[in-house]
Design a protein around this nucleic acid. Sequence first.
DNA 1: ATTCGCAAAGTTTTT
DNA 2: CTTTGCGAAT
Length: 761
Amino acid sequence: MESSSTAQSIHDSLTPVQLDAVNYIDGPLLILAGPGSGKTRVVTHRIANLILRGIPPRQILALTFTNKAADEMQTRLERLVPRQPVWMGTFHRFCARLLRQHASLVGLQENYSIYDTQDSTKALKQAVEVSEIALTHTSLDSIAQAISWAKNELISADTYKARHGSAIGNLVAQIYPHYQRRLLESNAVDFDDLLLHVATLLQENPELRQTLDTRFRYICVDEYQDTNSAQYAIVRALSVDYPNLMVTGDPDQSIYGWRGANLNNILEFEQDYPNVHVVRLEHNYRSTPNILRAADQLITHNLRRKEKSLFTDRDEGAPVRLLTYPSSRDEADAIAEHIATSVESGQRRLRDFAVFYRVNALSRSIENALRVHNLPYRVIAGLEFFQRKEIKDLLAYLHLLNNPNNDVALLRIINTPPRKIGKKTVEQLTIHARRYHLSMLEAARESGLIETLTKRSATAVAKFVSMYDRLALAIEDPLQDLIASLLDESNYRTWLEASESDEDANRLANTEELLTAAKEFDEQFDQEGRLEEFLEQTALVSDTDMLDEEIDRITLMTLHAAKGLEFPVVFLTAVEEGLLPHERSREDSEQLEEERRLMFVGMTRAEDELRISLAQYRDFRGQRNMTVPSSFLSQLPREEMEILEPVLFQDTAFHDDHEAADEWIETEFRNQSSESAAETLDLTTHPDAWEETPSTPQRYPAHLFKVGMIVDHPNYGSGTIVEVRGTAKKRTATVDFFGSAGQRKFRLAHCPLVPAGFDEI
DNA sequence: ATTCGCAAAGTTTTT
DNA sequence: CTTTGCGAAT
């Protein structure tokens, strides 16, 4: 076991290569870790080793990209050497902390707000308005992207120069400074700023840099292949006097280049830090040789990488399968059937299976098939909870309380719930604020002085301000209490309760969830500055962090979301030109390599079985198109794989030949008697066949819904009724959906729920 | 002030 | 087929 406390015994189970990494203490260390090579184990053992050798835990800093990774590391370290105050967390959280302490050095106050992407976009929109530039030929999005790119490259608003002749560049050069000013005036930062500000801080304050370098003498960076230039600069600045820097990563698993990750950081690590010790973890403990060889052969086609030879002790296992289906529906059905069969026979559990796809939109067809087979699943979709309107609303109240300059928050809630403060009124407030350089809240306080406002509007605004002031008195209360008063004072709760819609009933339920989260937080942190801490946490958290691994369900997710995970059986779907590689990546060879890495990551998630599939016809965005198999498929060791040949038109189907397609449908499908084929034909002939039955006013009788009943919902799919409450019009059912929808409440008198199997009304 | 409806566009997303 | 944002109607 790993609970003993001597250096000797805790490392007993490690291989010589792993021990080499664990025992290398001083100086730069690069761990090139292939998929499934026990990297996290090595990292945690090494940190434990540092501690056991007498290095104060406070001098150790471990940086990760996700909270999940940080938690995982923390838990494992806890098992090796309990209760050591090693700072572990994401880059962003680390920077947020540092920035709190040194906010004034970059023109912020310590209670600054962290804008999420949505908030940032709003701020950017305002900046565009102020700069009086008409965005005719570009979108707000591309401006945002350009600014984000610049920040990741450490280019500040002052130093940004448009590339000569770049139209967008010229716009950005004008807008970026306005945007940055808006943020500073609001005492706010965007995600990129967290890194940029800290990097700037370290660059411009040598004494501070030195202090921190000394404080964090031993630094570990996980997933180094995904660091961007800002992160690189931060790590670099903290490793000058004490270059005890350990980075781990795998160039072959770099899939966030589009977000500014710079593959050169890892590729050139050895040049950046002299006397680097390099350890290669090439022993894979996860996959069968079959899977590993296929993945390896694919990735060999990349040029920008470091040679690695992966090996495993496992038995050969099943061959990798390449399965071609006539249509995307057939593909989805086959997956569902395969899973159903092996679960029924007792060979596998639901949680052994994962289905991967390149884009989120592809999950729908899989979901449909799984639903038909009554197979429970979960869709990993990134942000959900904290992006819901009601949660964002309530958090906006808190944000404004914590940082009265947070204009985006004010604009969000000043009329939510409706307070008769409309667009015109807000416009006048904005003008007033800009003229006198006030925050929106300050402007609102002066509503009585604004002549252009009607008396009615001014009163409404004044009422809002006094509500704010009343809430501000409770700012030191436990969060649970604060949010509770917030729900009352703002009329948010009354507003939702008064509503008749199911949607609002659900919102009310989500509100409760936030209260629960706040309660848990209160129990955890019983100190000053609770609110600020809470807001920081919620801003830097994603739903994926709360993933419950215990539940027995099939997992559906994008290839990006799959990184770091493993499953006994993996379905890699829609491996078609245009999707994988994605069409937007096809031109550029660097991007094409990233797509190949994405496929590599997907393949190497599989432990026992890997099933790669594609369809000859794919229904996507309401259209049916003939597909072309992915060019990556020809880069796999086909001779040793099991290949299910396309059912029809092996040759023509590989070209984008519409005439052939029509002919195929005309002649071949008509002669087929198979059910799925018949249905597919129907679809092409009558596109309307997909559409829902037109809704009729008639509903399934409310009193017939019972707890335990399986029901269908047009949007959320199937689920089980877990609770029925209330009477007459207020009779409400709580449904636990099999899919990603989770639990939702419905007023039975007017919701589209029907018992499963109850066809049409 | 709010709601409704239509047009437009639709990788990936650790924070 | 979806989702989302903005403009017109109540």
